[in-house]
Amino acid sequence: MRPLGYARVSTVAEAVEIVATDPAGAFLAGGTTEIDLVRLGVARPDLLVDINDLPLHDIDDLPGGGVRIGALARMSEVARTPAIAGRYPGVAQALLLGASQQLRNMASMGGNLCQRTRCAYFRDGVSPCNKREPGTGCSALDGLNRGHAILGTSEHCVATHPSDVAVALVAFDAVVHTAGPGGVRRIPIDDFYLMPGDTPDRENPLRHGELITAIDLPPAGIAERSVYLKFRDRQSYEFALVSVCAAVRVEDGIVTEARVALGGVGTKPWRARLAEQHLLGVPATAESYAAAAAYELSAAVPRRHNAFKVELAQRAIVRGLTQAARGGMR
């Protein structure tokens, strides 16, 4: 691992200032992505600013039924918070299906939003990779791309966003709060994730030195019966082949509201808005769900090893909506 300076800060302002003024500075929260990537030589900070002492650990109710999650709250804590487990079960399930309990005890919510792709070409430090070394090309386009994305891809990058919880947060329109050299701002989570386009190295709109301070989950009655399903080769401790966060409101057999988001198939946590639109006013049947899923996946761009995900994602959506309509519990 490269030599590192280390500083522990106790206020957000200190954290922002010290990183903003050092081009080779980076924040250190749980470290589960950061330390891994520094050891691999993929992330190259010279200074890690430990933000774990900042007062950003709380999880609070918001007026109207929403929840504010401090950026340093650990995944495991958030998952067992009654407000989350009760009002946003899809979020809690996504948290518990991510990583392992040890990693969930370490990883912060803010850090989770910033986690990097598991693309082997990105991580190996040597293959051409536009995300790691802009302009060098994408090794995954014609390489081993079973794990790669089919939605939101570009000719420059097909790397999958690996987060589970971000998929659920995207489904429920979470808002990311940040503090940076330019002050504080609120970023709707769907805007927080950028499509790769021709700048796959830019994954989010954070500026250097800008820190995530909190994540708001706005009130959403539909979330109370949400589900998060994750499908993978191994039963646990693996990133998703496909995951789906689904919630549906059905009145007299007709869908009146739906939320669908996908993981494992998108270059960002994928809000399936096309499917959602397609679901409004249709009978709550597997056939309707399949039609909506097909609509969403019609934009998919499969590659050699991941073509199966086009079908798999559609079936996952049907399964997710079916379970959500049944009342959320498996």
Partner: peptide
């Protein structure tokens, strides 16, 4: 809390 020592800096 159980954590992974390989991804934890000692100084932290």
């Amino acid at each position: 809390r159980r954590v992974l020592a390989c991804l934890t800096l000692a100084i932290a």
